[in-house]
C-alpha cells in the first residue's frame, strides 16, 4: 500500500495543538529510532491516520476524527521533543 509522510499530519494536528508538531522529533517506543514527525510513514487510506516508524514500521501514532472529537493514540512514541515558543 502506498504511504505518504508526516507532512500530511500538519493540519490534522494543528486542529488540536498550537504548535506545528511535524517539526517535533520523537522516539519510536519499539526500536528507539528518533525522527522528525514529518518524516514518518503515514497511511491515510484507513478509518484514521496511522503513522509508522521508518525503521521498524511499528505504529507510532493513530489519529481518528469524528465530527465533534478526536482520538489521538501516541502509545508508539516513548517521547516527543517539542521546541517551545519564546515567552
Amino acid at each position: 500500500m502506498t504511504f505518504l509522510d508526516g507532512n500530511e499530519l500538519a493540519a490534522p494536528l494543528r486542529e488540536i495543538f498550537t504548535v506545528d508538531l511535524t517539526v517535533a522529533s520523537g522516539q519510536c517506543a519499539n526500536c528507539g529510532r528518533r525522527c522528525t514527525l514529518a518524516e514518518v510513514r503515514l497511511y491515510a487510506r484507513a478509518p484514521g491516520l496511522v503513522a509508522r516508524c521508518t525503521g521498524c514500521e511499528a505504529v507510532l501514532l493513530r489519529l481518528v476524527r469524528s465530527p465533534d472529537r478526536v482520538w489521538l493514540d501516541l502509545s508508539g512514541l516513548s517521547y516527543l521533543e517539542i521546541a517551545r515558543p519564546p515567552d
Binding site: 494543528r14 498550537t18 504548535v19 506545528d20 517539526v23 522529533s25 521546541a83 515558543p85
Partner: peptide
Amino acid sequence: MARAAVLGRLS
C-alpha cells in the same frame, strides 16, 4: 531545532 511560533487557531 528552531524556536517554535505560537500559531493561531487553524480554521
